[in-house]
Simulated scan of single mutants.
Amino acid sequence: MAWLRDPDRPVLLSVVFWVVLAFTVAINLAMVSSVLDRVLFFATVALLGGLWLVMPWRPGRGRRLVAPAFLLGTLTLGLTGAVGTHAPLLLIGVANLAFVYGMRVATAILVSFGLIMFAVGPIFYGATLVRALTELALIAVLATFSMGMASAVVRARQLADRVRELTVAEERARMAAEMHDSVGHHLTVIKVGLENAERFRHRRPEAAWEEVRQAKELTVAALADARRWVRALRPLPLNGHLGSDALRLLAASFAGTGVSVSFEVAGAERALEPDAELVLYRVLQEGLTNALRHAEAESVQGTLSFEKGKVVLVVADDGKGHEEGHGFGLSSLTERVRALGGTLTCGSASKGFELRAELPS
């Protein structure tokens, strides 16, 4: 039943639809009409309400025939007592066609409809040419507005999809570089050490066993790095959790690494935008990973603070600290935080190293 809460359905259009439909019903109730007309009218209203709940709002989502069925329903509503109030519903139907079938198909349908309406008025209802042109001009203005809004939404969705693709590509490139520098380095050294052990096994057995011991230690380090990358590849909603719950679970997932990791929330928690949640998740992930790999820390503390107009995430460890030079991971995070209007700072604190992200909220 998730399609009943379709996130792709524009909220404003949904509000307009129900308000116009309610207004149309109220107008019809105030009119004197036959029982048959009332039955047809309310049957059409019920049909439109049902179709609205299942209409797709993206191409390739299935139920494509619902869109033309809804448009046909709005035309039927105009013939069963809507007295012109169905026009906004008609334009919403055309906008939906733009979302599902594309702008060209929606424009062709709208032009065809306008020409049909222009011909039907004088032929079947005795309308004058001036009145037909006036109604056509009104429809053209409303249709232009509707199509313009639909075009803007479609373009925004295309840009959002492109941004997501670029973000994923950037994240993969960062992970590839980090994995090459960590796991790849360990495996290379292990290979060289085992080759040395093979050469020394007869002439210098003590040296051979020392190479094997070092290779074993590096294998443990490589395995720990691999496990960290498995955690890094987990999706943001951990077992259905978001916000501070996801961050808390991320911190808990680092248990068993030999470093004490804690996480707390300060202030009254409030909902954040999905992009902000993802960036905060990556900041905590980067801070914990760096603390384990470089800081030689005994404990790491993550604090998410909800302050007036902003949210602050601080990841602090009690390790040896290091210079503020940005690696690929921190540079990438800095750009992502700036894109959301925030700041990311890092450097040695009074004891250890601190990573601090501030985002508007």
Results as ranks from 00 to 15, higher is better:
114 G>Y: 09
90 L>I: 03
85 T>M: 08
125 Y>G: 06
131 R>Q: 14
93 G>Q: 04
131 R>S: 15
126 G>R: 06
118 F>K: 05
90 L>W: 06
115 L>S: 11
94 V>M: 13
121 G>T: 07
85 T>Q: 10
118 F>Y: 13
132 A>L: 05
108 A>C: 06
126 G>L: 06
127 A>D: 03
113 F>P: 07
83 V>N: 09
109 I>L: 09
119 A>N: 05
85 T>P: 05
101 Y>C: 02
91 L>R: 03
131 R>I: 12
113 F>D: 10
98 A>H: 01
110 L>Y: 05
122 P>Y: 07
90 L>K: 04
125 Y>N: 11
90 L>P: 02
116 I>K: 02
107 T>Q: 09
112 S>P: 14
106 A>D: 00
127 A>L: 09
134 T>M: 11
106 A>E: 00
112 S>K: 04
100 V>Y: 00
115 L>T: 11
111 V>L: 11
92 I>Q: 01
108 A>R: 03
83 V>K: 08
84 G>I: 09
122 P>D: 01
90 L>C: 09
85 T>W: 13
90 L>E: 10
93 G>Y: 03
89 L>F: 07
134 T>Y: 13
115 L>M: 11
91 L>Y: 12
118 F>E: 04
105 V>L: 09
126 G>S: 05
114 G>A: 13
127 A>W: 14
104 R>N: 06
95 A>G: 15
123 I>G: 08
89 L>S: 04
119 A>G: 10
125 Y>W: 15
111 V>M: 08
94 V>I: 15
114 G>Q: 12
84 G>C: 04
133 L>R: 06
123 I>W: 08
112 S>D: 04
129 L>H: 11
106 A>K: 01
94 V>D: 03
99 F>Y: 14
86 H>G: 08
122 P>M: 01
122 P>I: 08
99 F>S: 02
120 V>E: 00
113 F>V: 14
116 I>Q: 03
117 M>A: 15
113 F>A: 12
92 I>R: 01
102 G>R: 02
129 L>C: 10
96 N>C: 15
133 L>G: 05
98 A>T: 06
134 T>E: 08
133 L>Y: 09
124 F>R: 04
124 F>V: 14
113 F>R: 01
109 I>R: 00
107 T>D: 00
129 L>F: 13
98 A>K: 00
89 L>C: 03
117 M>N: 13
